[in-house]
Nucleic acid binder design. Sequence first.
DNA 1: TACCCTCTTGCAAACGATTGTAAAAGCGTC
DNA 2: GACGCTTTTACAATCGTTTGCAAGAGGGTA
Lengths: 331, 331
Amino acid sequence: MSDIARLCGVSTSTVSRALAGSPLIQEATREMIIEIADANGYVINPLARGLRLQRTNTIGVVFPLGAITAQLISDPFFQQMLGHMVDEISLRGYQILISKVAPPKPGWLRELIKAHRTDGMVVIGQSDQHAALNDAGQVYRPLVVWGAHLPDQQYCVVGLDNEAGGRLATEHLISIGRRRIAFLGDASPPEIHQRHQGYLAACRAAGLEVNARLDMPAAFSPQQAEAAAERLLAASPDVDAIFAASDVIALSALQVLRRAGRRVPEDVAVVGFDDAEVASHSNPPLTTVRQDLAHGAKLMVDQLFRRLDGESTDGVTLPPQLVIRQSTVAR
Amino acid sequence: MSDIARLCGVSTSTVSRALAGSPLIQEATREMIIEIADANGYVINPLARGLRLQRTNTIGVVFPLGAITAQLISDPFFQQMLGHMVDEISLRGYQILISKVAPPKPGWLRELIKAHRTDGMVVIGQSDQHAALNDAGQVYRPLVVWGAHLPDQQYCVVGLDNEAGGRLATEHLISIGRRRIAFLGDASPPEIHQRHQGYLAACRAAGLEVNARLDMPAAFSPQQAEAAAERLLAASPDVDAIFAASDVIALSALQVLRRAGRRVPEDVAVVGFDDAEVASHSNPPLTTVRQDLAHGAKLMVDQLFRRLDGESTDGVTLPPQLVIRQSTVAR
DNA sequence: TACCCTCTTGCAAACGATTGTAAAAGCGTC
DNA sequence: GACGCTTTTACAATCGTTTGCAAGAGGGTA
């Protein structure tokens, strides 16, 4: 900037004000300065600017990956969410700084905040970090989290009503006459825990027995999910329906069932969760609980920017929607 | 930092050196300083640090979206690439700054570089920005681009041999007896152009006629791709094979063919490109040209870091691999 | 000419780190 | 005690901006 100032025969403060469009600078001077700056390919240094202004025009998108998930790529959910976030945030002229926190160490979120590299943060998924989020949420306002609504939470959450989703899926399976309904998924992240609660509630309401043999922990990666599905079939050969905690898990279950010679949906009906792109193209197409990630991402970013403006926001609970396809109801 | 210095009864320079692990600082002093810094939740400010060091520990991932693509989310290719990039870069302890450049204005890349927010950059896809890349690549070293290898290029490219991929796909269709093979895709981005060249070469080698009715521009979004597939069927009802420029386009074609009552592969065989997750789960599963994005991403990041170390790298051309599934060969 | 007023511009102090160089401290030796 | 040597610490400049405040320029009026 001092080079430009020298070229223009003015001081850096004048250049700075001219580029910022300050009314203190005469129109003719401004035009001259802008022209010379452009001609010399001058670009303002965002680091220095951020340091001075304490504003970076950047939003952080954080993926806390606890014990549950090893890699980001493992699930299309993360990929899609990230894609939507990039779209929504760049629409508002902000930059995006991604942090993958794996595994989270104590204080990770406070450190991320205190680094002051971003004006606000979006956290995708609570993982097992509810305490850290509560801790930060009380003092740091521009924070929005995607995940489950928890009773004692001190931070702004946008997320699906996962319990209702679990109930919806399970009631659908019950309504088509299934009685031995298995749950396939690891219920330790809060979102999945709530889906599981919904499953249990629906089973109890219908007077169905739920036992440990029907309740099979399964991680999100296809390989581990297949292994879990095989364990399930071995433990409960008479299972007549599977409610999987995600579409990826459901697709793995479909593969295992096909290899085992079970027909879907005649012998075993399968329901997934997410309505990822794959769900509609699978064979058979997958009945699933749809979460509208594009809308969710939009809401999160909306709320975040309202918080940046000093408003306070309460989060949103989105209604789940059951999408019925041929994995539960044959044509 | 000056607070910590005051608390410790030393100067900021001592604190800085202690935290950086400089041998100039006595062990006892260092331990005392680190302890006090931790106890007070002190976190170094990366903006100030970056400003001083002219290093940000950040890699930029840039998506230039030219006239071709409207949204980032439209194609799983971008989502997957982004996911892999995040994985590979964070593995090396660097942060990731995403820029979606849509549409690219003249000088966008030089501006991005001159902003000095990142130590290096990865550009995903050339779009229609070959000139801008050439312009920047000559002066800016830490730049790696995913895309097609072009004759006069001055920048480091990692990418698939798209022409070979196009040839492979087309030869496969020819080998199963197809004669009226359509190309579905917009050949203006270099990658797709090369796939199209491979298609033309294979057709010519087999003595097949290629006419405009078999050559149908199709954008990457499912809606537009479906419309294109419908136009194709209308223009050339006797088509017996479709080579689609991406899996998303191929899946749209499958939908349209099903609605039109054509059997796949008996009436019309379909080949896609990418081997996205959806390809293996579709109905019927899609024959496609696989690009190993995980490997590609790893190579790109490898080369970028070697360039950061002052080495110069030449880019890599990856071999395509045909994955044959039931959309071309019935079981 | 002296004075005041308005309009522009420049000076210099931040923002929060790093680092070359100078100074201080500690210690052994003559 | 003076000197020199090594070890440890502090001073101050620097990275590239922004901005409160002071000062200069120009013009009108008494």
